[in-house]
Amino acid sequence: MTPRPTDSRQYATFRVADLFLGIEVLKVQELIRRQEMTHVPLAPQAVEGLINLRGQIVIAIDTRRSLGLPAAEGDDQRVNIAIRTGDSVVSLLVDEVCDVIDIPLSAYAPVPENMPLEQRQLIQCVYHVKDGLMLVLDTARVFENACS
């Protein structure tokens, strides 16, 4: 039997450095692998570049930089998660995309106090999952912070 929507929510999950993060699946438009990017000189730090998403210019935001994490080493294998925001689309660059998971609302937990402030302010809430914690990314905040 499928769970009732009031009992659980679906999250698209991904990894950035050693963090396990999630976004409500309805916000995600699509995943784009290995896309060539145009660098934007003088752009805000978190903006990695521009990608062409079927004729639409989409800003790609480096999630690592947004969270104040160091850049990844080695080959660039990052994936773009295109996210709808208002009437436009913004892309988040993440290290690795994982599954879409169902999370019961009962697994809710507050944001850990010991998290660096830089990261804590971008996290909406936390859920207990099988192998630890899933942090729900506040995408609106991420996009807002990337403006400056």
């Binding site: 934007v40 062409n52 210019i57 990337a146």
Partner: peptide, 16 residues
Amino acid sequence: LGRQLKGLECYLGGTI
């Protein structure tokens, strides 16, 4: 261009 690049006065927009 998206909102994140609005503050840059040296660009008018983008193209493909």
